[in-house]
Amino acid sequence: QAETLRLSHWVPATHPVQVTGIEPWAKSIEEASGGDLSIQIFPAQQIGSAPDHYDMVRDGIVDISWTNPGYNAGRFPIYSLIEIPFHISGGAAGAKAIHSWYQDYAKKEMSDVFFCAVNSHETGALHSKKKITQPSELSGLNIRPAHATMARFVSNLGAAPVQVPAPEAREAIARGIADAITFPWGSIYDFGIDKEVKYHMDLPMYVSAQVLLFNKDSLNGLSEQNRQVIYDHCTPDWSQKMSQGWVDDDRAAREQMIADEGHTVTRPSEEEEALWREAAIPSLDKWKSDVAASGIDADKTYEDYLQSLQENNADY
């Protein structure tokens, strides 16, 4: 008897996340189960708004959800380590490294769901209305940050973070509410922001990695074979595979921007790059003190993270 699981995510159905990530993954599950298990995809917040996706899967509103832990500030302190800028050099390998590192922590921090995979875009960059190559140039700017950690990072540098939902980011930039934005390369085109920001700082600045989560009862309710199929599809390798299409899309967008004469893509000098990495240290310290407060060995967790990044060739 065929079993169907419902998966909810919050980007459009035509986004590379669904087309090159979730769909092939779901198809592989269907084939591995011999057509016994299928995944029904609900895109674009059809059954719940983006920040609710963790609770939705925990509460069984859906069986699987594609969640951005960064949308719930302060809720997943360990996971927010991956948000600290200038640590990851590539999105697909980064997803694998994050998965390998986080899967044990997930049992504690996301204890009421089953952690399946990490899905990341290619490392995002800083896109702005004027040319920026140094941290000091952020001072006095309004910046739409990718997540709460990035908000802290830019405010440490004297910028004002402006929080608007991703769909309103274009509006915010067009109306001068924000002067710059940290965003994946592809999203700049997806949201039509390429008409507003003409300067791009070409450093692998950050990732905002989503997690694929299962409702525990839904998973336990499956037949033993089907459950094994799911376990086989919740591996660090799958995290990398699932992210590759999105990463390729972002890379193509970056190439397109370099080729476009209307856009200026600038790689900072090595000295400037060192300044940027240095600027991330206060964010890391803040993270350490935050997690230490909740009884976690911050240094060890950080060491584990770095080690996983190195092992997977994803370190900065």
């Binding site: 708004s49 609710d52 939705m56 509460d59 069984g60 509103i61």
Partner: peptide, 14 residues
């Protein structure tokens, strides 16, 4: 369609 409990849980989010 989905079950009573998840449906009630809609009320704690939406």
């Amino acid at each position: 369609v989905v079950g009573v409990k998840p449906a009630m849980n809609l009320l704690s989010q939406s």
